[in-house]
Simulated scan of single mutants.
Amino acid sequence: MILFLGTRPGKTEIKRLSGVRCPFCNQTGTLTVSRTSNYFHLFWVKLFKISTSKLAECSHCKRVYYQNEFTPEMENAIGID
Rank of each mutant, 00 (worst) to 15 (best):
M1Q: 11
M1V: 07
L3H: 04
L3A: 00
L3S: 05
F4Q: 00
L5M: 07
G6A: 05
T7C: 07
T7Q: 11
T7R: 10
T7W: 15
R8I: 12
P9N: 03
G10R: 00
T12C: 02
T12V: 12
E13G: 08
I14S: 01
I14N: 03
K15V: 02
K15G: 01
L17D: 14
S18W: 06
G19C: 10
G19E: 05
R21L: 01
R21F: 10
C22T: 07
C22A: 03
C22K: 05
C22Q: 07
C22N: 05
C25A: 09
C25S: 02
Q27K: 14
T28L: 12
G29N: 10
L31V: 06
L31D: 08
L31F: 09
T32D: 09
V33T: 08
V33R: 03
V33M: 06
S34M: 04
S34V: 04
T36V: 13
S37R: 15
N38D: 13
N38V: 14
Y39A: 00
F40Q: 11
F40L: 13
H41G: 00
H41L: 14
H41A: 02
L42E: 07
L42W: 14
L42T: 14
L42Y: 10
L42N: 01
W44P: 06
V45G: 02
V45I: 14
V45S: 03
V45P: 07
V45T: 09
L47Y: 09
F48I: 06
F48D: 04
K49E: 13
K49C: 08
K49D: 04
S51N: 13
S51R: 11
S51L: 08
S51A: 13
S51E: 14
T52W: 02
S53C: 05
K54F: 14
K54I: 07
L55E: 15
A56H: 02
A56I: 15
A56L: 07
E57N: 12
E57I: 15
E57G: 08
E57A: 15
E57W: 15
C58P: 05
C58F: 04
S59L: 07
H60M: 10
H60Y: 13
C61L: 05
C61N: 03
R63Y: 15
V64S: 02
V64P: 03
Y65D: 07
Y65S: 04
Y65E: 03
Y66S: 14
Q67P: 03
N68C: 10
N68V: 10
E69P: 12
F70I: 08
T71S: 04
P72W: 06
E73C: 09
E75A: 04
N76F: 03
A77S: 01
I78G: 02
I78D: 02
G79N: 05
G79F: 13
D81S: 12
D81Q: 09
